[in-house]
Design a protein around this nucleic acid. Structure first.
Lengths: 343, 343
DNA sequence: AGGGTGGACTGGAACGATTTAGTTAGCAGC
DNA sequence: GCTGCTAACTAAATCGTTCCAGTCCACCCT
């Protein structure tokens, strides 16, 4: 049952049926009512979205391309908050959300994606071939990374990390350490040696966060090069655990008494594993996080962290895509939250 | 730049270009290579998904229609695990995920949805007009509710709740209580009075869970009608909090010493608020959850709960939609996890 | 009566691909 | 030289809409 069938059945033109569904003002109310009634009666449930999107060039679909697998992204608090902000705005404007992963089968991205009216890309590396395959005329907003000729949304990573490190270093500290998130060029889950290719040129956020920490170290008279660093490959409890166990199980003389973590997930894992070992927080171990996820604030000890509003970040990106606000480069401010883990 | 333009430019037919992209065996490798090279060169990034989906009738998009708002669904551990299972399967088969909410602007659903090749519907009520608007010939799988003529995926709610309640009632209990999730016909966030229209006929899961609890009560010689019940409208910390405060702040003689909760989120909120009040778990208060979310197992006290594998539930639904397994009615088993909150 | 106006409806050309049913050329076999 | 076969390619119909450019008619104004 197509629009054409329906038109023939009713003895009107296809244009009129189309108007009955799309432009009520173009035909008499009586005829319109008749058409809609008959449509329902004959089992026609409105114009086919496929044909419509071909003809109009618009689908009311916005694609979100995520750096990690969908599985990860949906479970991670930060990226699902981002998605939820995006969804919120799209929903109110009658748009829908298509989820794509830029990771494994990136092949499927260009194919499926050309159906979308716009793209929100989260945390990818700008060098990816992927970008050249996206239809160049449709809007694209980059979140948490930089790419030329496109709008971006960020938080003030460097100043925020500087501020929280400065706060942490006000309390005398013997052995500070940093737990990075996806910092190294090559995958590395564990201690970062001197000789490892350190900073991937493209990981702009991670680099900015580390730079903030290091600025505070230098200012406090600590040589940043002397501060031990670990790296975490994926922001999950499971992947964090072995690395953190390695740190906490160091002999007491070597064990850090301050851990600057690049995410709350990492920090929460530290809390869990430290509790299991009977370490007292903050007496034996102080730590800071990043993100300000809800889970970190529900229960004692509440995390000392940088709160970024990922939901709002998503809203902004969505509004930019829909043209509700200028698509420009935007840096959001964050807020330091002093919790119990580093008073 | 369209396929037709490219064909003209190269002096071949559109069919040949189409074959170059879709059926390598239909033309000489040499010509194919030439076409692909030139395509890239001239800025043609493959067949347009809109036109293709119109012509072939397939889009490689599966729509997931969620009962709650997208914002909620993306933040809730259970539904995002479900999504993640779905995404995992779709991803490996080159399909993508379109997220729709069946709630507020249900109007946008039929319009946008006819682009999808199939539908996974989560937790909706089958009476919704929505269903009649979906293209009837495309596959539909219902998750966590029943609808005629369609495949469904479930867990064994009643037996699972019976089992955990039985376990909880083995320890002598003076004042058991139940905290339901979305049980009442009319929205109600708080104590359920006798005169409230109790069981929405359509909320099959919730009803099944309560039935399981009540069977165990009866068996333990407790009149189910005497057990006080509360109701929670939305499975979030914020919405749970006032109700749980109401319960925990009852005079000690009235305060329940066993709380059977219909979700881990509710149970976790109880843990948080009980800790704040200095109540000892399980000495002063025992409680059980439902879902088995990761957050409930990380930190002490670990929840005593029913673990359902929502990720696997999603995988099954996705496989059914893609025809990788028979689309029939399926009941998954759950596992009781004895944690610290009700040993 | 003639001209102008505007509302209601229609015809048919796109939109950009896929696919069926060919056509053509080359070559082997007899 | 004819037939038959295959590989390589093409012409044209088709998918289900939308929307531009009209047509038609009733009505009003002068």
């Amino acid at each position: 049952m197509t629009l054409k069938d329906l038109a023939r059945e009713l003895g009107v033109s296809t244009a009129t049926v189309s108007n009955a569904f799309n432009r009520p003002d173009q035909l008499s109310p009586k005829l319109r009512a008749h058409i809609l009634t008959e449509a329902r009666h004959l089992g026609y449930s409105g114009p086919d979205a496929r044909a419509r999107s071909l003809r109009t060039g618009r689908s009311r679909i916005i694609a979100v391309i995520l750096a990690e697998s969908l599985t990860y992204s949906l479970n991670d608090a930060v990226s699902s908050e981002l998605l939820s902000g995006i969804a919120e705005v799209l929903d109110t404007r009658g748009h829908t959300l298509l989820l794509l992963s830029g990771r494994q089968n990136a092949a499927s991205v260009p194919g499926a994606s050309s159906i979308a009216d716009g793209f929100i890309v989260y945390g990818l590396m700008p060098s990816l071939k992927l970008f050249s395959d996206l239809p160049p005329e449709r809007p694209l907003v980059a979140v948490d990374f930089d790419i030329e000729d496109h709008a971006t949304v960020h938080v003030d990573n460097e100043p925020a990390c500087y501020a929280i490190a400065r706060h942490a270093l006000r309390t005398p500290t013997r052995r500070p350490a940093v737990i990075n998130l996806r910092l190294t060029e090559q995958p590395c889950n564990g201690r970062i040696d001197d000789d490892q290719a350190l900073l991937s040129a493209e990981r702009t956020i991670t680099r900015a966060r580390l730079a903030g920490f290091q600025r505070a170290f230098a200012e406090a008279g600590i040589d940043p090069a002397e501060v031990p660093m670990w790296n975490i490959e994926e922001n999950t409890f499971e992947v964090c655990t072995p690395v953190i166990e390695e740190i906490l199980d160091l002999p007491e003389a070597e064990r850090p008494d301050l851990l600057l973590c690049m995410s709350d997930r990492i920090a929460l894992t530290v809390v869990t594993l430290a509790e299991q070992r009977g370490l007292r927080i903050p007496e034996d171990l102080r730590l800071t996080g990043f993100d300000g996820i809800a889970e970190g604030q529900y229960r004692a000890p509440r995390l000392t962290t940088i709160r970024q509003d990922s939901t709002e970040k998503g809203r902004i990106a969505a509004r930019m895509i829909l043209g509700m606000e200028p698509a420009e480069s935007r840096v959001m401010t964050t807020e330091m939250m002093i919790g119990d883990t580093c008073p």
